[in-house]
């Protein structure tokens, strides 16, 4: 909370972004304290990782300091106070924190906890709700990521010619940091293996396609930071990554269609195999893979696009 107030007061945007990264990490530990392991994992990798990275990439392109505002934010304060009053008013009748007999624990959720082992057959209830009971929401979520990818792609386009010219002029940033480069080379396989572990272990422990995708992307981003865009692009073609963003969504929705063709409802994994629980396993595995592919591909695309802008600006200067 102190962090949040500090963010509100500071005008150095770099510090603001750093603080918001810290804020995310603190949030993640708080989520952990509230038993939300999967959420904590995601918040740590997204809020403290990817989002801070994107902010920093943007800050490289825009001025670092905020101008002092000329207006007194009286109206804003009024709106905020009104909202706050409504919220506090709303909390008055809430079931108390941690109470086991609150309505949320009585309806709907008990079935997930009691029957998911028989119906879906995996111990991580969050994964079984995410990928099966409410699998359609997760398809939507993957589509949101894809949409953001399309948005950034269309906004931050850099033509191939500029790329080629720019590359000749701008060298990689960290050519001389030998220790970093060696360490990174050693880390990279570990990061990628860890990503795969998170991807396929999501059924038993915290993790799943989304977190794995982010970690996988982080590995590639680390590589790019140290070895430069040109080298990375030799290994990973932009066009391929762009198509992969679409492929993940197609894989997810394709599983749904396959279920329909086999006589079930959309995303009804039971029909994928003779034994419903096996079918669920297969379905969840595939859709999590779809999520992972799209997320990793979109995150890498986002990073590439922001970095290309930086390179382009340097070149233009």
């Amino acid at each position: 909370m102190v962090t949040a107030i500090a963010i509100a007061r500071m005008s150095d945007l770099f510090a603001v972004v750093m603080l918001s990264g810290i804020y995310s990490l603190l949030s993640a530990s708080l989520f952990l304290d509230l038993d939300a392991v999967d959420v904590a994992f995601t918040e740590a990798s997204v809020g403290a990782g990817i989002s801070t990275l994107l902010f920093l990439a943007t800050l490289k392109l825009v001025p670092r300091y905020e101008k002092k505002s000329r207006y007194k934010p009286t109206l804003a304060l009024g709106v905020v106070i009104a909202t706050g009053a409504l919220l506090i008013y709303g909390t008055l009748d809430m079931p108390h924190f941690g109470e086991a007999d609150a309505p949320v624990h009585q309806h709907v959720a008990p079935r997930y906890l009691n029957d998911s082992m028989n119906e879906v057959g995996i111990p991580n209830v969050v994964t079984s709700v995410l990928a099966s009971y409410r699998g359609y929401d997760t398809l939507g979520e993957t589509l949101v990521v894809f949409t953001a990818g399309i948005g950034v792609l269309s906004l931050l386009m850099v033509s191939r010619r500029t790329k080629e010219k720019a590359l000749q002029k701008v060298p990689a940033d960290m050519q001389n940091q030998i220790i970093l480069r060696v360490v990174a080379k050693m880390m990279l396989p570990l990061i990628l293996i860890f990503a795969l572990y998170v991807q396929f272990h999501g059924d038993y422990g915290p993790g799943g396609g989304f977190q794995a995708g982010v970690i996988f992307a982080a590995g590639i981003i680390l590589y790019t930071m140290l070895f430069g865009l040109s080298l990375t692009q030799k290994v990973i073609k932009t066009e391929v990554v762009e198509r992969l963003t679409a492929f993940g969504v197609l894989l997810y929705a394709g599983v749904g269609i396959a279920c329909m063709l086999l006589g079930g409802n959309f995303l009804d994994y039971n029909v994928l195999r003779h034994d419903p629980v096996h079918g669920q396993h297969l379905g969840i595995l595939l859709v999590e893979l779809g999520v992972g592919i799209t997320v990793a591909a979109v995150m890498v695309t986002l990073f590439f696009k922001f970095t290309w802008r930086t390179v382009k600006h340097k070149y233009n200067q």
Binding site: D35, A36, V104, H105, Y112, V126, V129, R134, D137, E141
Partner: peptide
Amino acid sequence: SNPLPHVLILTAIV
């Protein structure tokens, strides 16, 4: 603890 809010928030973070 109740898993449903966790699922919803995973989506919301994304």
